[in-house]
Write a protein that binds this DNA or RNA. Structure first.
Lengths: 139, 139
DNA sequence: ACGAAAGAGTATTTACAATACCTATTAGCA
DNA sequence: TGCTAATAGGTATTGTAAATACTCTTTCGT
């Protein structure tokens, strides 16, 4: 059971942004702070922007800001967006028809329910609950 | 959020075995039935055997049998065994010390709790609930 | 003793996440 | 009205770990 680093990094970016909700963060700044590739973080930011979680602005002085207050962003929702398109098991994917147990398989329903339980549990917290307490003093 | 095919196949093998609890299944037979490599299934079977979920016997007429009745095997337990060693996110792994958010990161605790919720939800069912109903008539 | 089966270590392949690169496009500012 | 800083987004490449294969050993039944 594994989340992608895509999700991992996405959450970290959000945690950082939640620690200073007033200003905009450029992907370049976040990349430097975390020691990661700007391009990669851009992809993640794009996904977050399309889902309406952050608002981005181009041009000088631009960057990304949380689209809503951190208390309104539930963790399950965030993880669901970041993990979108990631099938829990292979037979949840696009070519699901070729499962040799098709029809008789009662496992899939159970796994889906459990995945839901996972996200629901995360939904008990919001981004505000995990925002970075001390705003990373040049660490 | 993804489970390994290791887990996927492991569950299928158990589902099949639960459909005929009296006889032993060789990995060769299961491999043929699922169209997978015998060697791969062997690895999975070994893990299940070491965890005490199945009992194996070598030699002619040997194979694997469920070590307990299917109603006593909870799904969360099975998944936990099969997914053992798989970190939910990178910083859960062996070299966790190098997380740039170390100490201030309240995310890890939340993820662990959610993972637990996932397994607990699966624990509401047993292998008996998902055993193959019709014992795969030469399909 | 012979063959059938699991056990176990190692090597190889392969799929896909992760990363990099490149070219728009858009917005602010002088 | 350029110039520059930033996102947007496509494509190509890399790296790594899962998935698979191979080989040998051990154990058991007949």
């Amino acid at each position: 059971m594994r989340l992608t680093s895509f999700t991992d990094y996405g959450l970290r970016m959000l945690m950082r942004m939640a620690s200073a909700p007033d200003r905009a963060f450029s992907t370049a700044e976040l990349a430097a702070e975390f020691g990661l590739s700007r391009n990669h973080l851009s992809k993640i930011m794009q996904r977050l922007a399309r889902a309406g979680i952050v608002a981005t602005r181009r041009g000088g002085g631009g960057g990304a800001v949380l689209a809503k207050p951190a208390v309104e962003l539930r963790l399950g929702e965030l993880v669901a967006v970041l993990e979108e398109g990631q099938p829990l098991v292979e037979c949840f994917g696009a070519d699901a028809g070729l499962c040799s147990l098709d029809g008789r398989c009662r496992l899939k329903a159970r796994l889906r329910a459990a995945e839901h339980a996972f996200l629901r549990d995360l939904d008990r917290s919001t981004l505000a609950d995990i925002a970075l307490s001390a705003p990373t003093a040049a660490a």
